[in-house]
């Protein structure tokens, strides 16, 4: 099945289009900076960059409403920036500092924001899938018409718990959009070598879950598919699957020599399909923006990212007392869903 393409004429306003450009560029520049800080030893451990996949989260965030929830795996920096979390707090968590979202106790893979309804940041492949369905379970219980975006990769799509979750989500009609970010490589194993079928979006069909394939290098196609999936969930029709074909330009993590694919393959995607370049072209060709307008956005983003790096370097390491806090809580930090 061919990937679904957006209508030739964008169905969004020039202002929205500019916003997508800005949001995608923020993720890219932020991730480039994170890669740089990693190289300097300021970020440790694992660091999974989102470069190349920006259109996925930006397109889906454009389909979300206030109160909708999102949860994802360890490749999570883009999701956090796209839902409006503060780049300073994200970068400072990457450097393990007090000013980070988790006070330096979570790191790249484990960050949360109650305010932005971002439920992590999970380091175990596939574990976020039942968790996301559980968030949707809570919303269903509360009958509040909220939708949860549950992101996972083509690698996680082979985990058993994903199918346990598909079954219950369909059985109980949970308002959850399962977003399969198919970047074609589960760490270093290509989809062809790991997955018995070409199409992952059809894997919900045996459970009665509708799914479709989406061009993840086209933010407008993602937004359009997101609108459809969200409407389905909000109407009480149960879960929906979006398999979004995307591509990560960088390695699985920082220490990935990327010998499982050719340099030419990556270069071809960058040159021909890049999601940011696509929107840039749309803006310029449609005369919605001038080169100068875009330069101003580039400058603004560069300043935000540089400021976040500065913040992340300046913020002190957590106090040693932090070792012993947040193991148990005296109250439920996120509060009770139904107040007594």
């Amino acid at each position: 099945m061919a990937a679904r393409k957006a209508a030739a004429k964008p169905n969004v306003s020039p202002e929205e289009l500019k916003q997508y450009y800005r949001d995608m560029l923020l993720i890219r520049r932020f991730e480039e900076k994170a890669g740089q800080l990693y190289g300097m030893g300021l970020i440790g451990g694992f660091c999974h960059l989102y470069i190349g996949q920006e259109a996925v989260v930006v397109g889906l965030e454009a389909a979300a409403e206030e109160g909708d929830k999102r949860i994802t795996s360890y490749r999570d920096h883009g999701h956090m920036l796209a839902c409006g979390m503060d780049p300073n707090g994200v970068m400072a968590e990457l450097t393990g500092r007090e000013g980070g979202y988790s006070k330096g106790k979570g790191g790249s893979m484990h960050m949360f924001s109650r305010e932005k309804h971002f439920y992590g940041g999970h380091g175990i492949v596939g574990a976020q899938v039942p968790l996301g369905a559980g968030l949707a379970f809570a919303d269903n219980y509360l009958e509040n018409k909220r939708v949860t975006f549950t992101y996972f990769g083509d690698g996680a799509a082979n985990q058993g718990q994903v199918y346990e979750t598909f079954n219950m989500a369909a059985l109980w009609k949970l308002p959850v959009v399962f977003v399969i970010e198919n970047n074609q490589y589960a760490m270093g194993t290509s989809q062809k070598r790991s997955t018995s079928t070409d199409d992952i979006h059809t894997r919900g069909a045996p459970f009665g879950i509708q799914g479709e394939i989406v061009d993840g290098m086209d933010v407008l196609a993602v937004k359009e598919a997101g609108d459809k999936a969200v409407a389905h969930c909000r109407a009480g029709k149960g879960p929906y699957i979006l398999e979004i074909k995307t591509y990560r330009y960088r390695g699985h993590s920082m220490s990935d020599p990327a010998k499982y694919r050719t340099r030419e393959e990556v270069q071809k995607m960058r040159e021909e399909r890049d999601c940011i370049q696509n929107v840039r072209d749309l803006l310029l060709q449609g005369k919605h923006a001038t080169e100068d307008d875009l330069k101003a956005i580039d400058k603004e983003i560069k300043d935000i990212v540089n400021a976040s790096a500065e913040f992340a370097k300046e913020s002190p390491e957590p106090a040693l007392d932090e070792l012993w806090t947040d193991i148990y809580s005296d109250d439920v930090p996120q509060g009770d869903a139904i107040e007594a």
Binding site: L135, Q161, E164
Partner: peptide, 27 residues
């Protein structure tokens, strides 16, 4: 049946759904 829920035999899945529901403010 809204508050007393039979699950399929799928411990990994429903334990995870339970944890997610707790993140969402239920008990």
């Amino acid at each position: 049946s809204k508050r007393v829920i039979d699950t399929p035999i799928t411990e990994h899945g429903f334990a995870g759904i339970g944890v997610g529901a707790a993140f969402g403010g239920l008990k």
